[in-house]
Structure formats: C-alpha cells, structure tokens
Design a protein around this nucleic acid. Sequence first.
DNA 1: TATAAACTTGAACATCCGTTCAAGTTGTTG
DNA 2: CAACAACTTGAACGGATGTTCAAGTTTATA
Lengths: 199, 199
Amino acid sequence: MSGGARGHVRETGQDAALAPEQPTDRRRAKGERARRALLEATLAIIEREGIAGVTHRRVTRAAGLPATSAAYHFGTINDLLEATLLFADREAAHALAACGRDADPIAAFSGWLVQDFTDQRPRIIAEYELFLYAARVPAIRPSARRWLSDLTALVQTWTPDRRATRVICAYVDGLLLHALVSGETPDRHDMEATIRALI
Amino acid sequence: MSGGARGHVRETGQDAALAPEQPTDRRRAKGERARRALLEATLAIIEREGIAGVTHRRVTRAAGLPATSAAYHFGTINDLLEATLLFADREAAHALAACGRDADPIAAFSGWLVQDFTDQRPRIIAEYELFLYAARVPAIRPSARRWLSDLTALVQTWTPDRRATRVICAYVDGLLLHALVSGETPDRHDMEATIRALI
DNA sequence: TATAAACTTGAACATCCGTTCAAGTTGTTG
DNA sequence: CAACAACTTGAACGGATGTTCAAGTTTATA
C-alpha cells in the first residue's frame, strides 16, 4: 500500500467499529460514516434475502460504495456479519433500556415487542437469523449474548425468582419465533397478562 | 428428453418425495433412495455450514451423486430446502409421538430434548435454521408448522389450559434457542420441573 | 512543507454457482 | 420384443463471488 493504510485490521475489536463517540479526525469520521452505511445495508439485505444473500458486492451496491470498501472496512464476510449483529443488538438494547425506564415496564415491554413484530417483521427475522448464526460461529457468540443478558437483566427487575426469569426470557423469544412461522401476530395484552402471571 | 422423464415435476407435492410406503417399482425405489441420500446430505451440509452452504454441487458430492441429480429430483434449491425441512420435521414428529406414548410423557419429553441437545447440537441448529427460513419463504411455511402443531398437540394432552399450552410450547423453543447461543446445556430436571409447574 | 495515517477504488484472479440440455441406461408393462 | 417411464449423467452457459493488489486522494501532524 502506498500510504500506510490500516485496512480492515481490527486491533482493539471494540473501538474501531462504530465507536459511540464521534472521532474529531475527519478521516476517521468519514470511515465511520462508511461503516455505518455498510452495516445498515447489510441489515437491509438480511431482511430481504437472509444471511445467504450477504455478499460484498450486494452490500456495497446497496450502500452506494465501491465493492472493495466492504473488505477494507470489515475484512471477511464473517467479520461483517459479526459487526452487523453487534449493531443490531445495540439498537435493541436501547429499546430494552427505554422499557425499563417506563412507569409500567411490563406493559411497555409487551407493547414494544408486539409493535416491533407488527411493523418491523423483516427486521426481526434478520435479527433471529443473526442470533442463530452465532450458535454456529463461536467467534461472534459474545455479540449475541448481549441480547440474552440485557433481556435477563430487565426481567430480573420484575421478579427475584430465577426460574421465573428464565421462563419469561425463553417464553418471549419462543413466542416471537413461533409467531414468525405461524404467521399470527402475538397479542399484546395476552403477552402482558402471561408475563404477570409468571411472576 | 429421449425417454419421457418426469424430471423434478412435483405433481402431487406430497406422495412423490419420500413417500412412507416403499414403491414396488424398482425404478422408483432407486429414485427414492437417491432422494433420501440427497436430503440427508443436505441436512448434513446445513449442520456444517448453514443454509448458505447448500449448493447443488456440494449436496450431490456429499451424497456421492452427480451434480445434476439434485436438480432432477428436487428442482430448485428452494424446493430442496423445503423437502429437507419436511424430512427433518417428520423425524422430529416420530420422536414426539414416542414421548407421548411413554408412561411419563413429560419426563420422556424433557429427557429427549436435552439428550438431543447434547449429542445432536448441529442438527438442532440446522432445524432451527430451516424453521426460521420458513418465516421468510411463505411457500414452505406449512412444512414448518408441522413442528408447531405436533408440539402443541402433545402439550395439550398434559393440560386443558390454552394459555399454559402456549407458554410451554414457547418456553421449550426459546430455551433451546437461548441454550444454543449461550453455550450452556439445559438441565433436564429443571426443565421437567418447570413444565410441571406451568401446568 | 514533509511524512504518514486513514480511507478510496478499479482491475483482476481463480473459483464456484444454478440451471438447462441432450444423450444415455435401467426397469416395467403390454 | 416393443414402447414407454423413471432415472442418470457429462457438458456447457453466463454470471456472481471473495479477496488481493497497487495506485490513488484527503486529512492530520511534526
């Protein structure tokens, strides 16, 4: 390389990809914008065609960037998928935290889930696909465990009972998964009542 | 075509692919064997590399058949995946039915699930991947709904309460999904006790 | 202003892909 | 044995793919 480009080398693994604080360096800022566009494009493609449809060329075309930019910023496709999972999980964590701050967290939580299911169905499918992908690729499991730990932390504020916590967490994901396949929409009030009954 | 081959045309959609009763016609019997080999090879590949890894060439190589045979017997890749989902679901249904005939169905069910999870982990991942695939491709949803209805039917023999049935079904799949990602093994006795508590 | 970091990008490589087609073979039936 | 059905299979098609590489540009810093 002519200039000493760092390419897709992820030294720290945490700060480089979509760091929360914006860098003042305008070079890095531009890279940050490119990475975000690539992650959003990747998520959009998973929504439309599944993980199998994620290719450098498709992602970069959707992001309006040249084909090589995906490899530059994220290296292999696996790295790109891992970053995308982290990206999606971070957004879900924000929504979860917002539910926790609500006056009626259980109602807020049920409402959010059902609402999301209704008008973001492809997104939810994509998230579960990435989640399941983590079961196969150990390297990206930590990214997936975020959802698990965040969900568990929220439910634990509702009940000290550990078994009830486990049941509620499993119930939530199982319900969504079943609803995705059966085609039915989960009922918000039924879900809320069920959670309260389980506590 | 020289001989009037029917190719991958699925007229009836149900009887041709892996019909339960063996045909006496030895031509059909041979085709049946080829289809079964292809389905098992497909499942093995999904276990190892996921749905994204399923290609005509890989499947046929794993089955010891020429590349064109997959297209002949199943047509497109989507058709092959649908048949594979049906194939896997049928085996799961057998196991479910066996649990239902046990003297202690709940214990048998919990034992089977945890056992399967322990020494067939890749297979379970593959099944969930196919299951989720059905959420994206409406044409193959009926195949996936089989697991849902069979599971519901079994649980309904334990309790008349419809909400309890829904919770248990969702809990089971959510638990397995979480365990796949977290890396922990679900505890058989805890699961059994939880199900009994939910009834 | 010189040096280097960070990012950009077009070209190219070898490889694999789904599917079609035409020409076989094997087995059944009348 | 003739006619036909089911299955087999090698060749070929146009096209997409992951990744590498070398040559750029923009921006920060010493």
